[in-house]
Simulated scan of single mutants.
Amino acid sequence: MSDNAVPTQATPTRSAASGPFLSSIMQIEPQWIDYNGHLNMAYYNVMFDRAIDQIWAELGIGPAYMKERHGSTFTAECHVRYLREIHLGDPVVVAVWLIAADEKRLHTFEELRHADEGWISATSENMSVHIDMTKRKVAPFPPDIQDNIGRVLQAHAALPRPDGLGRAIGMPRR
Rank of each mutant, 00 (worst) to 15 (best):
H70E: 14
H79C: 07
Y65H: 15
L59N: 05
T75R: 05
S72Y: 08
D90M: 13
E77W: 05
F74R: 03
D90G: 08
T73I: 13
E85Y: 05
L59T: 02
H87A: 08
R69C: 06
G60R: 02
F74C: 00
D53S: 13
E58W: 01
R69P: 01
K67L: 10
G89W: 11
D53M: 08
A76H: 08
L59F: 06
P91H: 10
P63I: 02
V80W: 03
A76V: 10
A76K: 12
I86A: 15
R69E: 08
G62P: 09
R81C: 09
E58T: 01
A76N: 08
G60M: 03
S72H: 06
P63R: 04
G60E: 00
W56V: 02
V80P: 01
L88A: 12
Q54K: 01
Y65I: 00
R84E: 14
F74S: 01
W56Q: 04
W56L: 13
H70T: 12
E77G: 06
G60K: 03
R84G: 10
E68H: 12
L88T: 08
M66F: 11
H79Q: 13
I55W: 01
Y82T: 12
Q54A: 15
P63T: 03
A57K: 11
G60L: 02
A64N: 13
M66V: 00
R81Y: 05
W56A: 07
E68C: 05
T73K: 03
P63S: 07
Y82C: 11
H70G: 05
S72Q: 05
V80S: 12
F74W: 15
I55Q: 01
G71D: 09
F74N: 02
G71A: 11
K67S: 09
G71I: 09
L83V: 07
Q54D: 14
E68M: 10
I55T: 00
I61D: 00
A64I: 11
D53H: 11
Y65V: 02
S72E: 03
R84N: 13
Y82E: 07
I86P: 00
L88F: 15
E77M: 07
E85S: 12
